[in-house]
Write a protein that binds this DNA or RNA. Structure first.
Lengths: 209, 209
DNA sequence: CGTATGCTCAAACGATCGTTTGAACCGGCC
DNA sequence: GGCCGGTTCAAACGATCGTTTGAGCATACG
């Protein structure tokens, strides 16, 4: 009753990470067992503890593999517009949204957004602390830029709205990947359209009177 | 290392449901074991299977106990404003938001919103089908009223925005209950302020050009 | 050749999981 | 008293969990 025993190509570590991404998205961190996981990856059961040390470390590595590149892209995009006089709210939000959308372009990236949404909903302390200590500076930089562009909002008010917008975006992007799209729209055009969709929604949620 | 063995008062079934709400919110459906659960409730391990049949049925009952009342309140509030000529988007959104906020006023209700957010993030098929078949008509009625008040939006566009707003609201309300508030604001005034906050955000997200 | 080193393997470890069992207890009713 | 339906109890069931073990295999270097 487990998933198909088909293994992807690549090294043992990469096959484990790929299978973990899929099963964590489908059944959660506690619901996916190492036996299902290694069977799906086509590797031996002991390979997880050999290469990663423990299941918890594997979970961290699943996040690290994607978030290192994702948040780096976000910071690079933010640096191009932050602090400049003509920068708009749209520019900053696009710097936050577009890298995530490009990540969820391929199948495994979209699965990771599901995993991220799960971690967002779970209030697990150890996982939240891992994400906060390793990637907290990213959200801090974006928050500072939001504060600069929305000076009329009090700090509590701004944090409230950022929290709401972040929740909406995380939820929305966790639903990607499984969407059947009309064939007459090119991949690129559709992604561009989705970015504008999310950006406009976020602008409305952040800057409404 | 488990939670304190303090049991709440009430019947065995109610004690189990209360402990389940707490532990499901903290550790998830798979992460919370029946042994932790019954120990926290102060009842025998076999009581769960005796009163509910299985762990899965217990999960369904945790939802049913809260959602029956919550969605009934929402429909009653919606019926008071739906279809009327002077009804605004604010009225409809308030009918959706206020009952949930009143539920999360007490501690156990706030815990349930966490459980609901978890179910929202998990893409578990059986649980989604349970929620859809039992409470799908509620969201369908609200969607119909949104469509009436936002005729300029295409159907896909409307569904997109409702999905984004629902994700934001679910995430926001899952964070309640643990918030320390300044003592100079009354409980009622704070809730009223929060309702207006969420309503205004949702209006902006739904009706932006 | 011998021998390190990095990796994979089947097998087993103890712990914990959801569920079931059968005896014990309880109030109310004949 | 005797009995009975509803409930609680300790104990055990087989299954599955994360992790560890030690032998086996391959490749590289002296």
């Amino acid at each position: 009753m487990d998933g198909s025993p088909v293994n992807s190509s690549g090294s043992t570590k990469e096959r484990i990470l790929g299978a973990a991404e899929l099963l964590f998205a489908q059944r959660g961190f506690e619901g996916a067992s190492l036996r299902q996981l290694t069977a799906a990856a086509g590797v031996n059961l002991a390979a997880v503890n050999y290469h990663f040390g423990s299941k918890d470390k594997l979970v961290e590595e699943v996040f690290r593999r994607r978030l290192d590149a994702l948040n780096e892209s976000r910071l690079v995009a933010l640096a191009k517009v932050a602090g400049a006089p003509g920068t708009t709210l749209e520019d900053v939000l696009e710097a936050y949204i577009r890298p995530a959308l490009e990540l969820s372009h391929d199948n495994s990236g979209a699965l990771f957004m599901r995993v991220l949404a799960r971690a967002f909903a779970e209030h697990d302390d150890s996982l939240r602390q891992f994400l906060s200590t390793n990637y907290g500076h990213v959200m801090r930089q974006f928050t500072a830029e939001f504060a600069r562009l929305l000076p009329q909002l009090s700090k509590p008010e701004l944090y409230w709205r950022i929290d709401l917008v972040t929740g909406a975006l995380t939820h929305a992007m966790s639903g990607f990947g499984m969407i059947q799209r009309k064939s007459d729209v090119s991949e690129h055009a559709h992604r561009e359209q989705t970015v504008q969709h999310l950006v406009r929604f976020a602008v409305a949620g952040l800057s409404h009177p």
